[in-house]
Design a protein around this nucleic acid. Structure first.
Length: 740
DNA sequence: TTTGCCGTCCTTTTT
DNA sequence: GGACGGCAAA
């Protein structure tokens, strides 16, 4: 056995981390310091030391990272001993938890065929719960309630402890607690788990005597990447898993913590040494990714964070070119600028796959997308409405979910009349009542349709549907995955129904629903050919489908430009990076402020450090959002970057004599409940060109006014005022101006 | 039962 | 400016 291959090309600190075998270790790895390399090498190293691959668990942040790591470890091991070895477990927290629950869940009362309920399913269930407990807290939508429940679960708050949940108004707590309770019941009845349940139940499992111990006996070496983005439950999960062995290796970078809103707790990484007192700590500070200027820019930016452990980025590459900032009039010009920049690099021979465009928000990427389409530049976008969110795919998956988990009533309700087969709302209500009364599942009620005379005209349809499901269940028992999927598409009539719809609209492009269904078949095929026989069950496949994210589908093709949100860009690198919309209210985002300033800064830091050689940042002076234009100001972060490493930023960018202020006039449209007058906006008491006086900012000129929803917005130009503020103009008394 | 139209609401980031 | 829910008509 020759360990040289595994340690080849590593620096001193990296080698130290890779060679560490037993006991806790924390690797604090700056951006671009070869962290992934260290983890993969360490896995290979452990195996080379005779440790059983199956006893190693490596937790990654995305499925994509997991796949890549597995591929890299395999390559290393092939080079190392030339033969196939059994694989370590490399997965996300969610996927790993899902697998544990499938293997051991029975011991805590979880049926291994459970469905995983995603955000959309969850909302539907919340709505049902609201109806069931007869509560709809004022001003809260199902989505908001779902968010509160999600947060409660992440903090391990049960319904009767709801008072511990902050952010929820006192008077709404009882109602939310009741909805929460009912929601959990509904999940149980559906034999379903939501994303947070996967983690929570896995923790419960690990804390149960019998299963917990056998899991700990099975996994001896735990590696966790992106440790700075773990939440409380994940942290407890890690601690519990490593309880006996203490073989936990956490890697991460506090400066790249960008998931606070999802419950990530920076303390987990900052207090690692207190949790594991004898932990070895390794710092990786040499940056192998970016040029000096890019690092200088990123470093000077992140130094503005107060809550931070001081750390440096030491460049090994040359200075390179300064980063470039581009001022644009509006988003159209910004898009043109992107095309110009991309065109230049292409002429230099840089492949499109080495170039990426980042945005703080998804919506702005769609504007860029339009420009790329018209310029005929191939691109890849982690889209908001991903493949698995498409209607036809969700329909198909719902069928499969019912097959795998007959208790999944939610999915059954989705497809009972899709394609339309004459089982309307009335028939469905009858069936549900029948099921309730007989204490059976909805699917069982369907199979007994011949005994429900009240169904009347629909009875025959329901009977036919019942035999269809029985037929599919039989196929499910005796066929391979791909066959099941294919047969489901054909026998249920999904194919023909979408085919007809397509013919009607006369659109047979590659994005057609039918093509998507076929695409799903090949997904199943790929899955089947890559996965070990014992994992080829339908539930297993479906949980994988539920846990994939948009970023997982980004393939990084050599001939395509990549469009990403900054969050999705984490962990990736590109030769050329173009960051768009570096503007106040977008980056930092208005909704994250003011408490989220440091996380927003870290986000911008992550964006900058993805670039290897060239970095471009664009901002626009005005930008159209939901139909109308709004003034925008360059991001404060641009000011924080060391000017020596920037080109295109002039002093005047931030010190213009006149400032534009956005304003809002509170002018509520009367609600229908009010007797008078008709639904009409009051006339705006201000007009463009009007001069107004503000106590603090002096005289200003109204430049634009437009109606937006229930109020008027626009911008005012004040002379000599500093910084961007939003102010509120009260409609009455006329001309009274208040600061917001 | 299905379809289409209209009003409302929201607009961050994702496993 | 877009998605979704409710409601009315076919």
């Amino acid at each position: 056995m020759n360990a040289e291959v595994i340690l080849e090309g590593l620096n001193e600190q990296q080698t130290e981390a890779v060679r560490h075998v037993d006991g806790p270790m924390l690797v604090v790895a700056g951006a671009g310091s070869g962290k992934t390399r260290v983890i993969t090498r360490r896995v290979a190293h452990l195996i080379s030391q005779g440790i059983e691959p199956q006893s190693i668990v490596a937790i990654t942040f995305t499925n994509k990272a997991a796949d890549e790591m597995l591929a890299r470890v395999n390559t290393l091991l092939e080079r190392y001993n030339g033969q196939d070895v059994r694989r370590p477990v490399i997965a996300t927290f969610h996927a790993f938890s899902a697998q544990l629950l499938r293997m051991y869940g029975r011991s805590i009362g979880i049926d291994p065929n459970y469905s995983i309920f995603d955000t959309v399913d969850r909302q539907k269930l919340i709505k049902m719960a609201c109806g069931d407990v007869n509560a709809l807290p004022f001003g809260l939508t199902a989505a908001k309630i779902a968010e509160f429940i999600e947060r409660a679960k992440r903090q391990q708050i049960l319904p009767d402890q709801i008072e511990q949940l902050d952010g929820l108004p006192q008077y709404q707590r009882p109602a939310v607690a009741r909805i929460y309770t009912r929601y959990q019941q509904l999940l149980l009845e559906n034999n379903g788990l939501d994303f947070d349940d996967l983690l929570g139940k896995a923790l419960e499992l690990l804390e149960s005597d019998e299963a917990g111990e056998s899991i700990r006996r099975r996994y001896h070496y735990l590696l966790i990447d992106e440790y700075q983005d773990t939440n409380r439950v994940q942290y407890l999960l890690a601690k519990s898993l490593a309880r006996n062995s203490s073989n936990i290796c956490a890697t991460g970078d506090p400066d790249q913590s960008i998931y606070g809103w999802r419950g990530a707790d920076l303390r987990n990484i900052l207090e690692f040494q207190e949790d594991f007192p004898n932990a070895k700590v390794v710092f990786l500070e040499k940056n192998y990714r970016s040029t000096g200027h890019i690092l200088q820019a990123a470093d000077s930016l992140i130094r503005h964070n107060v809550e931070r452990k001081e750390k440096s980025l030491v460049p090994v590459h040359e200075q390179g070119e300064p980063i470039e900032v581009h001022e644009c009039d509006d988003e159209v010009q910004e898009a043109a600028k992107i095309l110009e920049i991309v065109g230049e690099y292409r002429r230099e021979g840089i492949p499109l796959g080495e170039i990426a465009v980042f945005s703080r928000v998804n919506s702005l990427l769609r504007t860029v997308e339009q420009a790329l389409i018209s310029a005929d530049i191939p691109y890849e976008l982690a889209r908001g409405v991903g493949f698995f969110q498409r209607k036809e795919i969700k329909d198909l998956v719902a069928y499969l979910r019912v097959l795998a988990n007959p208790d999944d009533q939610l999915s059954l309700e989705r497809i009972i009349n899709v394609p339309a087969r004459g089982i309307g709302l009335q028939a469905q209500t009858l069936l549900k009542a029948y099921a309730d009364q007989k204490q059976i599942s909805l699917l069982q009620a369907v199979s007994q349709a011949d005994q429900i005379a009240e169904l009347g005209k629909s009875q025959n349809s329901v009977i036919q549907f019942g035999s269809l499901m029985a037929q599919l269940a039989a196929i499910n028992n005796e066929s391979t995955l791909t066959t099941i999927v294919r047969q489901t598409i054909d026998l249920t009539g999904l194919r023909s129904c979408y085919q007809k719809a397509a013919e009607k609209q006369n659109r047979a492009d590659e994005l057609s629903p039918v093509a998507n269904l076929d695409e799903f078949v090949s997904t199943a095929q790929v899955y089947e050919s890559h996965i070990s026989p014992e994992e080829q069950s339908l539930p297993h496949f479906l949980s994988q489908v539920s846990l994939v994210s948009e970023i997982d589908s980004v393939k990084g093709q050599a001939d395509r430009l990549t469009l990403l949100t900054i969050h999705a860009a984490k962990g990736l690198e590109f030769s050329v990076v173009i960051v768009i919309a570096a503007e106040e209210d977008i980056m930092p985002h208005a909704l994250a402020m003011p408490s989220g300033l440091e996380e927003e800064r870290r986000l911008f830091f992550v964006a900058l450090t993805r670039a290897k050689r060239r970095l471009h940042i664009c901002y626009a002076n005005r930008r159209s959002t939901r139909g109308s234009y709004r003034r925008s100001m360059p991001s404060r972060f641009l000011k924080e970057i060391d000017p020596k490493s920037v080109r295109g930023l002039t002093l005047s960018t931030f010190t213009r004599p006149a400032r534009n202020f956005q304003f809002v006039i509170n002018a509520r449209r009367p609600t229908p409940a009010e007797p008078q007058p008709a639904l009409q906006m009051p006339r705006c008491p201000y007009r463009t060109g009007q001069r107004i006086y503000h106590e603090k900012f002096g005289y200003g000129l109204i430049e634009e006014i437009h109606l937006s929803g229930n109020h008027y917005t626009g911008s005012i130009r004040f002379h000599g005022a500093a910084g961007l503020k939003k102010i509120v103009l009260d409609i009455a008394p006329l001309h009274a101006v208040k600061e917001d």
